[in-house]
């Protein structure tokens, strides 16, 4: 790939998604974009960039951004954050929100939906006491393509075998020919919305828990700091931000500090000015039994 084309691609990806591609990550471009070049009968990545530079290449540009930002995911990906949710964070909210009987959770960069669906399955199975609570789960992603897949909730046999215990498959999915679709009542619990994390995310309102895992690793330090500071302002004093295993707030965002005993979980730093969490007014969904 000639340097000017690499620079074009890197600048475009940063502008559209915040993704930082440095010269040592060129293999990522090759691995993810070569199939797109082949599909469009283009000789390679240089030819792909040529095609992207053409007027009215929006669809191709979107396809490239999707390919670079869609990451492998699985149900209940990583044990640690789901243990924290099940054993500490959700029970804590059940106790502290007993008066309001409402919880808001945001799955940021939800990809094809495995993370928010894991969450609703866990809430349904482990927290029957929430049956009559107002639970709002907002799931966002940059890519309209993967969001539509997430809304449909249809997964291949390979996908439902990644991280999902068979008992949960039987309980929460319908078989649709060769594939598996999560049951309608669970699909209705999630509000899927397109969102660029670099845009004004504060319009989403306040959340008790934000999951933003394995996304920040693709951003530069400045962008990480900006996104984390905005998320910090969206949390109540007892709110929690869950990051991926390779991510941290330290040295990047002073508004957040670790939650003792919970690896990868962060909350508003002591002394940080937070706003009382208002009652949410957006779509509210009951967890029906």
């Amino acid at each position: 790939m000639i340097p000017s084309n690499f620079e074009f691609m890197a600048a475009l990806l940063k502008e559209k998604s915040g993704l930082i591609i440095t010269a040592d990550k060129i293999y990522l471009l090759d691995a993810r974009l070569s199939p797109i070049a082949r599909k469009h009968n283009l000789a390679g990545l240089d030819a792909l960039v040529m095609a992207m530079r053409a007027p009215l290449a929006t669809a191709l540009v979107n396809e490239v951004v999707d390919a670079m930002t869609t990451n492998e995911t699985s149900f209940f990906r990583d044990k640690t954050p789901f243990d924290a949710l099940k054993n500490s964070l959700i029970p804590g909210l059940v106790a502290r929100r007993a008066a309001q009987r409402s919880i808001r959770i945001w799955s940021a960069a939800c990809s094809t939906g495995q993370e928010p669906y894991s969450l609703v399955m866990m809430l349904r199975d482990q927290f029957p006491a929430l049956k009559d609570w107002r639970i709002e789960i907002v799931a966002t992603d940059l890519s309209p393509t993967v969001l539509q897949r997430a809304r449909d909730g249809v997964f291949t046999p390979f996908e439902v075998q990644r991280g999902l215990p068979i008992q949960m498959l039987v309980r929460h999915f319908d078989q649709v020919e060769q594939n598996w679709q999560i049951k309608p009542d669970l699909r209705r619990m999630i509000d899927f919305r397109p969102l660029n994390l670099l845009s004004d995310i504060s319009a989403l309102g306040k959340f008790d828990i934000i999951l933003c895992r394995n996304v920040l690793i693709y951003f530069d330090q400045l962008t990480k700091g900006t996104v984390l500071s905005r998320m910090a302002r969206m949390l109540p004093a007892d709110g929690a931000l869950i990051l991926g295993g390779a991510e941290s707030v330290f040295g990047i965002c002073d508004a957040l500090g670790d939650v003792p005993g919970l690896r990868g979980v962060y909350g508003p730093a002591p002394g940080m000015k937070t706003v009382q969490r208002p009652e949410f007014q957006q779509q509210q969904v009951l967890i029906a039994s």
Binding site: S74, P157, F158, Q161, R162, G163, P165, I166
Partner: peptide, 15 residues
């Protein structure tokens, strides 16, 4: 547990 063939290393490991 239940593995649906065909399967691969990742599926087996997860199960």
């Amino acid at each position: 547990e239940y593995i649906m063939k065909p399967f691969d290393r990742d599926v087996l490991r997860d199960k």
